[in-house]
């Protein structure tokens, strides 16, 4: 299994400069790739293209040699920086965890999601607690690649370590591929098999 961006170029508006130009990236199953570089030059955009949130104007994104599926649960899942934006504020946690698939007790336990959170509203959980919910939701049985765009940037060190330890364990067990976007060189050093700079792709 291979997720790749082939010569992708992207810009939001025809009048603007390219955010990404002829970028290439390959992530193998079971591989953890770090992506780093200064703000505002396309790291998040590349992640959004790889997860199918946007289509590149040129080039293509391929999963196992084929384009990403256009409907159904996506095998490439993206977790973003701000969990409070990624959940419907009017849904209870229990319902959020059912949105894509039924998150099971085992995964909840691994991510430290307590039973009593399930009946609360999103604004009754802290950022760290809510991010675990988002991670759990993205780890359905159909997920083959997990893209983490500054997933733990807003969290304290203890929560960050908790989440990453659980995610890495799951990724290893399932031979899932991962892309980790972060400014924290120490974090990437801890997690990744290889680190690429956005400028060089």
């Amino acid at each position: 299994m291979l997720l790749e961006a082939r010569d992708v170029s992207f810009r939001y508006d025809r009048r603007e400069d390219w955010l990404l130009q002829r970028a290439n990236l390959r992530i193998e199953a079971g591989e953890i790739v770090g992506l780093t570089g200064p703000s505002g030059i396309g790291k998040s955009t590349l992640a959004r293209l790889l997860a199918g949130y946007r289509k590149p104007q040129q080039g293509e994104v391929r999963l196992a040699g084929k384009p990403l599926p256009s409907s159904g649960y996506q095998p490439v899942q993206l977790v973003l920086q701000h969990p409070e934006k990624a959940v419907n504020p009017r849904w209870r946690i229990r319902r959020i965890l059912r949105e894509g698939w039924q998150v099971d007790a085992e995964l909840r336990h691994m991510l430290g999601i307590a039973e009593q959170w399930l009946d609360r509203w999103p604004n009754e959980l802290s950022g760290g607690e809510l991010q675990r919910i988002c991670v759990a939701r993205a780890l359905g049985p159909g997920t083959q690649f997990l893209l983490a765009d500054e997933m733990t940037t807003m969290l304290d060190a203890v929560t960050q370590a908790q989440i990453w330890n659980a995610v890495c364990e799951i990724a290893e067990a399932r031979r899932m591929g991962m892309l980790v976007i972060s400014h924290d060189a120490h974090l990437l050093g801890r997690l990744c098999n290889r680190i690429v700079d956005i400028d060089t792709i």
Partner: peptide, 13 residues
Amino acid sequence: ALPQNGFVPLPGE
């Protein structure tokens, strides 16, 4: 828990 110092996750909330 810092990545540069062991990355030890303290369990619980």
